[in-house]
Computed example of a mutant assay.
Amino acid sequence: MNKLKINTWTGIFDIVACLLFASSWFVIFATAFSDAANKTNATSGAGIFFYAVAWIGVVLNAIALWQSYKHNISLVGGILGVIGCVCFGLTALLAFPAIILLIIAVVFLFLQHPRKKENVA
């Protein structure tokens, strides 16, 4: 069985997304305090960046999911990746569950096991 490059690249993207999501609260709070001190408005730009990363992750994981389906590879990594990125994409309050889901997704995306056959009775 050939390994899909889209799964490998999606796994790498998910690792980067985990690091970004882990730092997002610190960046957004630091930007908010800076905005309050300097009477500027950079917080929305910082938030938009993190949300953009999350929604790019949704699209990338969905493509990996579809390619895995077409090539008879386990769908677990793609499904968990989509769910994790959607969690953060909806609200940054779900950063911790998103990070956990993405870490598990990365493992399955890199493994690329064949899907189990269904038993039809």
Rank of each mutant, 00 (worst) to 15 (best):
residue 118 E to N: 06
residue 71 H to S: 13
residue 14 D to V: 15
residue 38 N to D: 14
residue 34 S to K: 02
residue 36 A to T: 11
residue 76 V to N: 10
residue 2 N to A: 10
residue 37 A to F: 15
residue 42 A to V: 15
residue 107 V to R: 04
residue 64 A to F: 11
residue 25 W to K: 08
residue 18 C to L: 03
residue 58 V to R: 00
residue 29 F to C: 03
residue 79 I to P: 02
residue 3 K to I: 02
residue 9 W to Q: 08
residue 26 F to G: 11
residue 80 L to R: 00
residue 82 V to L: 02
residue 68 S to Y: 13
residue 103 I to T: 06
residue 50 F to G: 06
residue 27 V to G: 04
residue 36 A to P: 02
residue 96 F to P: 01
residue 61 N to K: 07
residue 109 L to T: 08
residue 66 W to F: 10
residue 5 K to D: 09
residue 11 G to H: 08
residue 98 A to D: 13
residue 96 F to K: 03
residue 35 D to T: 05
residue 26 F to R: 11
residue 11 G to N: 04
residue 53 V to P: 01
residue 33 F to S: 07
residue 6 I to N: 06
residue 27 V to L: 10
residue 98 A to H: 15
residue 67 Q to P: 03
residue 120 V to L: 09
residue 4 L to A: 03
residue 13 F to N: 05
residue 31 T to N: 12
residue 110 F to G: 00
residue 113 H to K: 15
residue 70 K to V: 06
residue 65 L to W: 14
residue 9 W to H: 11
residue 47 G to I: 01
residue 13 F to K: 01
residue 39 K to T: 10
residue 83 I to V: 03
residue 29 F to M: 06
residue 25 W to A: 10
residue 48 I to D: 11
residue 10 T to P: 02
residue 78 G to Y: 04
residue 52 A to S: 14
residue 3 K to E: 07
residue 33 F to T: 12
residue 59 V to N: 03
residue 8 T to L: 14
residue 89 G to F: 10
residue 44 S to Y: 15
residue 71 H to Y: 13
residue 86 V to C: 04
residue 58 V to I: 09
residue 17 A to T: 06
residue 11 G to V: 10
residue 74 S to A: 11
residue 75 L to W: 12
residue 45 G to V: 07
residue 46 A to H: 07
residue 57 G to I: 01
residue 107 V to T: 12
residue 119 N to L: 11
residue 15 I to L: 14
residue 85 C to Y: 13
residue 3 K to L: 02
residue 72 N to D: 06
residue 121 A to S: 14
residue 4 L to R: 03
residue 12 I to S: 07
residue 117 K to L: 04
residue 90 L to D: 07
residue 113 H to F: 15
residue 20 L to C: 11
residue 81 G to W: 08
residue 25 W to V: 09
residue 36 A to H: 11
residue 14 D to R: 14
residue 67 Q to A: 12
residue 26 F to K: 14
residue 105 A to H: 08
residue 116 K to N: 13
residue 1 M to P: 12
residue 83 I to W: 00
residue 35 D to M: 00
residue 18 C to W: 06
residue 93 L to P: 04
residue 50 F to C: 06
residue 75 L to C: 09
residue 10 T to C: 05
residue 82 V to M: 05
residue 71 H to N: 13
residue 104 I to M: 01
residue 72 N to S: 08
residue 106 V to F: 15
residue 87 C to G: 12
residue 4 L to K: 01
residue 25 W to T: 11
residue 48 I to S: 03
residue 1 M to Y: 15
residue 70 K to E: 06
residue 97 P to R: 09
residue 20 L to V: 09
residue 81 G to F: 04
residue 83 I to P: 00
